[in-house]
């Protein structure tokens, strides 16, 4: 069964079309990545999934049936920017959010306490929300999303503002929730962050899906056509001949995308002639590379 199914969904604001006939399916129990640059239409898409806006055309299906407001009790939504009342106490606010999703006050309070301990902000429950750091507020928002134990979690840029320790904590919790069978949707422009988490993705640009499928399938499609080279000396070879289609210089190493049909061994020889090669490895392209590649083609 699919947790979410969008069928030819379209949304425009005045003359600007934010989402153009987008179709996608999110498998129940999967971790799905909705990826794309800023302004691609990710948040607009999510808003239609949770009924904040209504699509101009197309259909949104949730849990196998057309969307209805009742579904919201089974969904948890973490918005991109902090959506919290600043002057409310942390504990009161969490209880309010729990109640809004149908929990009793006592239930909500007990769950809030449990989660605050888990997320390491139990000591802050009696403080006003505005006294918390940005990272702590993000964790608080995260808890508010989970209190009612939703089957489907929508995470819009969940790691923004979190240090590596807290980002790991959040990721671990999410993986655990996924193991329990909950479906998770990541929406982000930081593709490297979700690459390791997602089983399926949908890349969107300018409101349109440009690439969809399971991660394995997509990467397979592109093959091991990338080469990572660590070298000392001149980088002249990068500006050579027809072997290289594009490259990305990271300073310590360079990632090269081979031209179609080019032989990697030829490139190795050429680099070795002029520079000292410390590492030469054939790798799968990163999502980011694939995205740049796809978007570059569609934009051209």
């Amino acid at each position: 069964m699919h947790t979410v199914e969008l069928q030819q969904v379209r949304k425009s604001y005045d003359k600007f079309v934010a989402v153009k006939d987008l179709s996608l399916k999110i498998e129940q129990g999967s971790i799905f990545g909705l990826l794309g640059p800023n302004g691609a239409g990710k948040t607009s898409t999510i808003r239609m999934m949770i009924g904040i806006t209504v699509p101009d055309s197309g259909q949104v299906r949730m849990f196998g049936e057309p969307f209805k407001r009742d579904h919201l009790k089974r969904i948890g939504y973490l918005p991109e920017t902090s959506g919290l009342y600043k002057r409310m106490k942390v504990s009161e606010q969490l209880v309010l959010f729990g109640q809004l999703r149908g929990l009793s006050a006592t239930d909500a309070a007990a769950r809030a306490k449990k989660w605050c301990e888990r997320m390491d902000i139990a000591g802050w429950m009696d403080k006003k929300t505005e006294e918390l750091s940005k990272g702590m507020q993000q964790k608080m928002q995260f808890i508010a999303t989970l209190l009612h134990e939703p089957e489907f979690l929508i995470m819009d840029e969940p790691f923004s503002g979190l240090d590596p320790v807290n980002a790991t904590l959040l990721k671990d919790v999410l993986l655990e929730l996924n193991k329990e069978g909950r479906t998770i949707l990541f929406s982000t422009h930081r593709m490297d962050q979700v690459e390791r988490l997602c089983s399926a993705i949908c890349l969107i640009n300018r409101g349109e899906a440009v690439l969809q499928g399971t991660l394995k399938e997509i990467k397979g499609r592109y093959g091991r056509s990338n080469v990572q080279i660590e070298y000392e000396g001149t980088d002249e070879f990068l500006r050579e001949n027809g072997l290289i289609q594009s490259f990305n210089n990271y300073g310590n190493y360079v990632e090269v995308r081979l031209a179609p049909g080019a032989d990697s061994q030829k490139l190795l020889h050429m680099v070795a002639e002029r520079s000292r090669v410390n590492k030469f490895e054939l790798v799968e392209p990163s999502l980011e590379d694939i995205f740049i590649d796809v978007v570059g083609k569609t934009d051209a």
Partner: peptide, 13 residues
């Protein structure tokens, strides 16, 4: 401005 309505509208009208 705090975009709290996004969270609220995902639970209430």
């Amino acid at each position: 401005n705090s975009r709290i309505f996004e969270v609220l509208l995902s639970t209430a009208t």
